[in-house]
Amino acid sequence: MVIFNRLPKLSQIASVYAVIVLVIYIWTILWSFWKLPSWLFFLSIGEILTIYAYSFATNLLESLLILCLPLGLGVILPRKWFLDVFVSRGVIVVLSVLGFAAYILTQFNSREDYPGNIIRLFPIVLLASLVVAFFVGRVKFLTRAIDFISEQATVFLFISIPLSLLALLVILVRVIF
C-alpha cells in the first residue's frame, strides 16, 4: 500500500518513539514524586502501585497518540521535507509539541479560565517547529547528534513497553473482574 511505503523504518520509528516516551513518562513520574509522600500517608503499597499501573497504561496510549504526529507528517509532507530525515525532524516536532503542551499546562491560573490566546498559537508553534525541523535536518552535525541521542534513548523502550503492557494487563483484570 502507498501509505506503508511512506512509513519510516522501524528503527527510525523506535528512535522518535523513545524520545516521546522519555518526555511523557518522565513528566508523570516527576509529578508522582510530588504526590507520593501524601499517598504514603494513607495508601497501601498495592494501592500506590495501582495508581502507577493506571499511569503507565495512560502514558502508553498517549505516547502512541503523539507518535501519530510525526508518522502523519511523514505521510502528508513530501518525502524530502520530512521522511528522509525522519528521526531528527520527528524529534524536533514532538519535542516542540510536547514542550508547548507543558507550557500551556502551566498557564491555567484558575480552575475555570481558558488561556485561549495561548492555545490559538498552536498552529503557529507547529508550523514553526516544522520550519526548525526542516533546517535542522539540513545541518549534518545536528542531525547526527539528534540521531545519536534518540537512538540511545531507545534503551528506555525495553523498560517502558513491558512495564506499560503489564500495567495495561493489571488494569484490564481489575476493570473486568
Binding site: Y54, T58, L61, L65, R111, I176
Partner: peptide, 30 residues
C-alpha cells in the same frame, strides 16, 4: 470504572487529569 472506581478516581481525577494542580498526564491531562 465501576469495578475499580476508587483506584480510577485516584489515578485519573486526582492525578493524571486533575484540575486543581498541573496534571500528571501531559497529553490527556491537557
Amino acid at each position: 470504572f465501576s469495578h475499580d472506581r476508587d483506584a480510577a478516581y485516584r489515578a485519573f481525577d486526582d492525578f493524571l487529569t486533575e484540575n486543581s494542580e498541573i496534571p500528571a498526564s501531559l497529553v490527556f491531562g491537557l
